[in-house]
Design a binder for these strands. Sequence first.
DNA 1: CGGAGGGTTGAGATTCATCAACGCGTGTGG
DNA 2: CCACACGCGTTGATGAATCTCAACCCTCCG
Lengths: 247, 247
Amino acid sequence: MRLPNNFNEQKKPQLFEKLSESSLEKLLQNSVMQDYESGRLLVQQGDTPEYVYLVIEGALKTFRIESEEGHEATIRMLESGDTCMEAVLFMGCPSPINVQTVNPSKILQIPERVIKKHVIEDSQFAVNLLRIVTRHYKNAMHQIDAINIKSPLQRVGYYFLVKHLDAGHKNLDFDLPFQKQLIANYLGMTPETFSRTLKQMKSFGIEIEGEKIKMRDAFSLCHFCDSDTAAICPLHNKEHCRNCLLH
Amino acid sequence: MRLPNNFNEQKKPQLFEKLSESSLEKLLQNSVMQDYESGRLLVQQGDTPEYVYLVIEGALKTFRIESEEGHEATIRMLESGDTCMEAVLFMGCPSPINVQTVNPSKILQIPERVIKKHVIEDSQFAVNLLRIVTRHYKNAMHQIDAINIKSPLQRVGYYFLVKHLDAGHKNLDFDLPFQKQLIANYLGMTPETFSRTLKQMKSFGIEIEGEKIKMRDAFSLCHFCDSDTAAICPLHNKEHCRNCLLH
DNA sequence: CGGAGGGTTGAGATTCATCAACGCGTGTGG
DNA sequence: CCACACGCGTTGATGAATCTCAACCCTCCG
């Protein structure tokens, strides 16, 4: 079992970060690499969790379904390098979420037992898990307040800001990593309102062409910043962010 | 530093669960017990996290504030035995949340350094933290789908169901543990709609008198159950839940 | 060429927030 | 002891915002 080189070179907390060779080997030896077609349901609400899923290539979404109408609420959207179900393993209950591929995907699956055993044996691994789960939790908190108290415009703006910082703050262009329907649902709105909101973004100096996003300048998205995102932004407090609400 | 006896006798995952005497002692020796009046702000968005807070008596809420209008989004409401800021410690960023007392409270504060060091030294403690954080995350996921795809009636119903199961499924009566404003905000609605929704609950056999909730029978709330809550319900699949949407 | 899926646009309906007023219980100060 | 103010909860009328439904365009693909 081998992973692509420089698979771990990302800024997000990673499952295998700083693990010793032997520790990593133990995990990989008991894991399975698998290919899936797009739209494949890997986990259903109510299933007992069996694996942690690590996306090698492709994309997944995790979501909940309401029983009556069948409406979906997207919890997370995962790209290459992301994991899911690590948190669910430790909840001690059936899975509260569905997991589904949204593209053809290559997935590494690590069995539940292997993970639980390894947490006890390797405290670095435990810390990695803690970092990952808390990161998820942080995003969830942002989602909650976004849906509760932010306007659609603010939600899209904040989403763009995060994507922009992810892409490196020097790039004034970036791509939407998922199809618009999916992003819309993740942001708690219909595709229609998402589309309408995108047009409003023009007045902030943001041009949208298909999935390409182009910012007029590096400060176009400052308007949507908040205190815990400012801490990540390399422009914060160096040159004063023009529209920053924090000032 | 001593804790009340049988402080650990709860079904929720607890910070000090299964710790050895010496391990527990190390934690408590470096902690501070403090009393606060109601309404005291313990942590602000943007602060660097300094403590984990364990509620001995009283109540806290954690919430986020939107910059423009000052609207609040409640993330969690804590009672005696609950902790907060454990997750934030491992996010590696300024606190994304505010923490405030909603009652006069007695709080045990464990410094950040003590926690981080102890996670490495005692893997049982690491697992405890994982359990707690994943529990929070689970609740956050429920909040997200509640606000996204559930009607106010369903949100209140589900909230009641959880409180009912918390209180022990044999009790047909239980109390609202917080003031209605707060619960309303937690559920992502105004106090007005919360009040109006409470009246609708009567048609499901739920009587509300002030903060007292009285269920007509043990199945009154089955209508609001979902797959991951059913796993906790002692009535599930024994006697078939009458209105259960899962069947 | 035709169909399917994603995205956009428009018109209408619904729902919840907003605003305002009131009742009620409590605590306070004259 | 009473008057009053205050906070919380409730109720009603109004309006705005977003969802819904429908039609249309586009691209991709068989």
